[in-house]
Write a protein that binds this DNA or RNA. Structure first.
Lengths: 135, 135
DNA sequence: TACATTTGTAACATATTTTATTACAGTATG
DNA sequence: CATACTGTAATAAAATATGTTACAAATGTA
């Protein structure tokens, strides 16, 4: 659910990193992303479940970072919002009576696993702080 | 169009590699992938446009490889079926009056470009022949 | 206390993308 | 000339993503 999940989440976190002392409202954040506030709150719910942010209900409420952005890497954000990288699978179960059909998904999975390792290595090297400093 | 494009295409090419002397029909290939034959023909059309396969119309027609599978890498297949790897962008244009909104897509694009390079390097090292030999 | 503002969440609606189906013209084979 | 294919367009259905409305609950403040 939500395919721009990673992009949206990193946008939220970048804003929170820029204003580490304020509780930002979902409405404000939504204005920067140009997205419905409810969807912002949904992504924030995910971040809360991972204890990356904390939020305060009621008037003047909102959300703020709960971790040090120098310690959070893009890899962790990736894993919270995107199971794995892959180039997809065919939708239907392939024919198990065909030698290729029988093993295709397994072989693709192995390929994709390698891919993830490479990508993870890259993302592990970038902290939220690093990313935010580009703005 | 077609998100399982890479998976489907590589499935097709693996079959063609296994039977290098036969013209395989879209119906036969579709049976292994468990996919509608029209969709198989569409992917084959793409492969033909890249001169990877050739096909013969009419009775006993079908498709066969037009290249040496030791010379075709998964990177090339990836590029024919998947523009680039990325973790997505938010759907709407972000707010250009916000410093984060203004640069988010550009910064994500740079991140994704690095990712593609890593993935390309991996895929470049695997030939269609290598992949097919796993079956 | 009463009011305004904000989160949290569910339910529903719309839009977009993917996959499937039908149909049929054109081409080769026997 | 009947049969079995490709090629392709048009349309339908299904799946996924995004957007909207609504409202209870929480919290600050007049």
């Amino acid at each position: 659910m939500i395919s721009g999940k990673f992009a949206i989440t990193i946008h939220i976190l970048t804003l929170l990193t820029k204003y580490p002392n304020d509780y930002l409202s979902s409405e404000y954040i939504a204005g920067s992303i140009n997205l419905n506030p409810v969807l912002v709150r949904k992504e924030i719910a995910n971040l809360k479940a991972h204890h990356i942010v904390e939020s305060k209900e009621g008037k003047n409420g909102g959300t703020k970072l709960a971790v040090d952005p120098t310690n959070l890497t893009l890899k962790e954000i990736f894993e919270m919002t995107f199971e794995t990288i892959n180039l997809g699978y065919a939708k239907n179960q392939p024919n198990p009576d065909c030698p290729v059909g029988k093993k295709i998904n397994q072989n693709l999975a192995a390929l994709y696993a390698d891919m993830n390792q490479k990508v993870s290595l890259q993302l592990e090297g970038i902290s939220l702080e690093d990313f935010s400093n580009q703005f």
